[in-house]
Computed example of a mutant assay.
Amino acid sequence: MPHLLIGHTAMVLHYLFFAYVVLGGFLSWRWPRLFWPHLFVAAYALGIVIVDWPCPLTEIENWSRLNTGREVMGSGFIDHHITGSLYPAEHLMTSRYVIAGLVALSYAGAARGLRRRRAARVEGALSG
Protein backbone atom coordinates (compact mmCIF):
# COMPACT_ATOMS: atom_id res chain seq x y z
CA MET A 1 0.00 0.00 0.00
CA PRO A 2 2.75 2.58 0.76
CA HIS A 3 4.33 1.94 -2.64
CA LEU A 4 1.04 2.70 -4.34
CA LEU A 5 0.51 5.88 -2.30
CA ILE A 6 4.03 7.07 -3.12
CA GLY A 7 3.45 6.37 -6.82
CA HIS A 8 0.14 8.20 -6.90
CA THR A 9 1.68 11.14 -5.05
CA ALA A 10 4.48 11.26 -7.62
CA MET A 11 1.90 11.20 -10.42
CA VAL A 12 -0.08 14.08 -8.86
CA LEU A 13 3.16 16.06 -8.38
CA HIS A 14 3.97 15.37 -12.05
CA TYR A 15 0.64 16.88 -13.13
CA LEU A 16 1.22 19.89 -10.87
CA PHE A 17 4.75 20.31 -12.25
CA PHE A 18 3.42 20.13 -15.81
CA ALA A 19 0.68 22.66 -15.05
CA TYR A 20 3.21 24.99 -13.42
CA VAL A 21 5.53 24.75 -16.44
CA VAL A 22 2.70 25.62 -18.81
CA LEU A 23 0.84 28.24 -16.78
CA GLY A 24 3.13 29.25 -13.92
CA GLY A 25 4.58 32.23 -15.76
CA PHE A 26 1.16 33.86 -15.65
CA LEU A 27 1.32 33.78 -11.85
CA SER A 28 4.25 36.18 -12.02
CA TRP A 29 1.89 38.81 -13.45
CA ARG A 30 0.26 38.98 -10.03
CA TRP A 31 3.23 37.88 -7.91
CA PRO A 32 6.43 39.01 -9.67
CA ARG A 33 8.71 37.09 -7.30
CA LEU A 34 7.42 33.86 -8.83
CA PHE A 35 9.15 34.69 -12.13
CA TRP A 36 12.54 33.30 -11.11
CA PRO A 37 11.28 29.99 -9.70
CA HIS A 38 9.21 29.54 -12.84
CA LEU A 39 12.19 30.31 -15.07
CA PHE A 40 14.17 27.62 -13.25
CA VAL A 41 11.33 25.08 -13.53
CA ALA A 42 10.74 25.88 -17.21
CA ALA A 43 14.46 25.56 -17.96
CA TYR A 44 14.60 22.21 -16.17
CA ALA A 45 11.53 20.99 -18.06
CA LEU A 46 13.15 22.08 -21.32
CA GLY A 47 16.26 20.11 -20.34
CA ILE A 48 14.12 17.04 -19.67
CA VAL A 49 12.58 17.30 -23.14
CA ILE A 50 15.65 18.34 -25.17
CA VAL A 51 18.69 17.00 -23.31
CA ASP A 52 16.90 14.02 -21.74
CA TRP A 53 17.77 15.02 -18.19
CA PRO A 54 16.45 12.60 -15.62
CA CYS A 55 13.23 13.42 -13.79
CA PRO A 56 13.15 12.34 -10.15
CA LEU A 57 9.36 12.11 -10.21
CA THR A 58 9.52 9.65 -13.10
CA GLU A 59 12.04 7.56 -11.17
CA ILE A 60 9.77 7.54 -8.10
CA GLU A 61 6.69 6.68 -10.12
CA ASN A 62 8.51 3.86 -11.93
CA TRP A 63 9.83 2.54 -8.61
CA SER A 64 6.27 2.47 -7.31
CA ARG A 65 4.99 0.77 -10.43
CA LEU A 66 7.72 -1.87 -10.22
CA ASN A 67 6.98 -2.55 -6.54
CA THR A 68 3.23 -2.83 -7.11
CA GLY A 69 3.46 -5.20 -10.07
CA ARG A 70 2.51 -2.64 -12.70
CA GLU A 71 4.30 -1.88 -15.95
CA VAL A 72 6.87 0.93 -15.68
CA MET A 73 6.53 4.01 -17.85
CA GLY A 74 8.78 3.38 -20.82
CA SER A 75 9.44 6.87 -22.08
CA GLY A 76 8.31 9.14 -19.28
CA PHE A 77 5.38 10.93 -17.73
CA ILE A 78 4.30 13.04 -20.70
CA ASP A 79 4.30 10.16 -23.15
CA HIS A 80 2.59 7.86 -20.68
CA HIS A 81 -0.06 10.12 -19.11
CA ILE A 82 -0.58 13.16 -21.34
CA THR A 83 0.14 12.31 -24.98
CA GLY A 84 -2.91 10.64 -26.41
CA SER A 85 -5.25 11.93 -23.70
CA LEU A 86 -4.69 15.71 -23.58
CA TYR A 87 -3.73 15.90 -27.26
CA PRO A 88 -3.38 13.31 -30.05
CA ALA A 89 0.03 11.65 -30.30
CA GLU A 90 0.56 12.99 -33.83
CA HIS A 91 0.39 16.56 -32.44
CA LEU A 92 3.27 16.23 -29.98
CA MET A 93 5.38 18.92 -31.65
CA THR A 94 2.37 21.20 -32.02
CA SER A 95 1.69 20.87 -28.30
CA ARG A 96 5.33 21.72 -27.54
CA TYR A 97 5.08 24.85 -29.68
CA VAL A 98 1.84 25.86 -27.97
CA ILE A 99 3.42 25.36 -24.53
CA ALA A 100 6.50 27.36 -25.58
CA GLY A 101 4.20 30.09 -26.89
CA LEU A 102 2.26 30.21 -23.62
CA VAL A 103 5.47 30.48 -21.60
CA ALA A 104 6.77 33.23 -23.92
CA LEU A 105 3.45 35.07 -23.66
CA SER A 106 3.51 34.83 -19.88
CA TYR A 107 7.06 36.21 -19.78
CA ALA A 108 6.13 39.06 -22.13
CA GLY A 109 3.24 39.93 -19.82
CA ALA A 110 5.52 39.74 -16.79
CA ALA A 111 8.00 42.10 -18.48
CA ARG A 112 5.20 44.51 -19.32
CA GLY A 113 4.00 44.46 -15.71
CA LEU A 114 7.53 45.09 -14.48
CA ARG A 115 7.87 48.12 -16.77
CA ARG A 116 4.52 49.47 -15.52
CA ARG A 117 5.49 49.02 -11.87
CA ARG A 118 8.83 50.74 -12.43
CA ALA A 119 7.17 53.62 -14.27
CA ALA A 120 4.62 54.00 -11.46
CA ARG A 121 7.42 54.06 -8.87
CA VAL A 122 9.33 56.71 -10.81
CA GLU A 123 6.17 58.75 -11.28
CA GLY A 124 5.37 58.41 -7.57
CA ALA A 125 8.89 59.47 -6.59
CA LEU A 126 8.74 62.51 -8.89
CA SER A 127 5.32 63.62 -7.66
CA GLY A 128 5.95 62.87 -3.97
Rank of each mutant, 00 (worst) to 15 (best):
L39Y: 02
P56A: 11
S28R: 07
T68D: 03
P32N: 06
V41E: 06
F26Q: 04
F35C: 02
T9Y: 06
V49A: 12
G47P: 06
C55N: 10
G47H: 07
A45W: 11
G69M: 04
A10W: 00
I50V: 15
L66R: 14
G7H: 06
R30E: 00
M73D: 08
G25I: 03
L34K: 08
G25T: 06
V72N: 00
H8E: 14
R33N: 03
L39P: 00
W53G: 08
V49G: 00
A43Y: 07
A42T: 05
I6R: 13
A19Y: 05
Y15L: 04
F18H: 07
E71K: 11
I48W: 07
W31Q: 09
I50L: 15
A19W: 07
I82K: 03
H80Q: 11
G76E: 06
H8Y: 13
G76D: 09
I6H: 07
A19P: 03
P54M: 14
E59C: 00
L46I: 08
G84E: 10
D52P: 00
V51L: 14
G74L: 13
R30A: 14
T9I: 11
H81A: 12
L13I: 12
T83I: 05
I48N: 03
Y44V: 09
T68C: 06
G69T: 08
R30M: 11
F77I: 05
V12Q: 10
Y44G: 02
W36L: 12
F18M: 15
F17S: 04
H38M: 04
L27H: 11
N62C: 08
W29Q: 06
L13Y: 04
V21Q: 01
L57F: 06
W53M: 06
I60L: 14
L23H: 07
A10N: 05
I82E: 01
P54N: 04
W63G: 00
F40L: 15
A43T: 15
I50A: 10
F35H: 04
V51M: 10
W53S: 03
H81V: 01
L34I: 03
Y15E: 06
H14K: 08
L66Q: 12
A42N: 01
L39S: 06
V22G: 05
L34T: 09
G24E: 05
V22P: 00
S64T: 08
D52K: 14
L13N: 02
A42H: 05
G76Y: 02
Y20H: 11
V41A: 14
W31F: 15
I6L: 13
I60G: 03
D52E: 14
I60C: 10
P37N: 13
G84H: 02
L27A: 13
R30Y: 13
V21F: 12
I6C: 11
H14G: 10
S64H: 09
H80M: 01
T83Y: 10
R30S: 04
L27I: 09
A43H: 01
L5E: 13
L57H: 04
L34V: 03
Y44W: 15
A43D: 04
V72C: 08
L27W: 10
T9D: 07
G76T: 02
E71H: 05
S28M: 06
E61H: 11
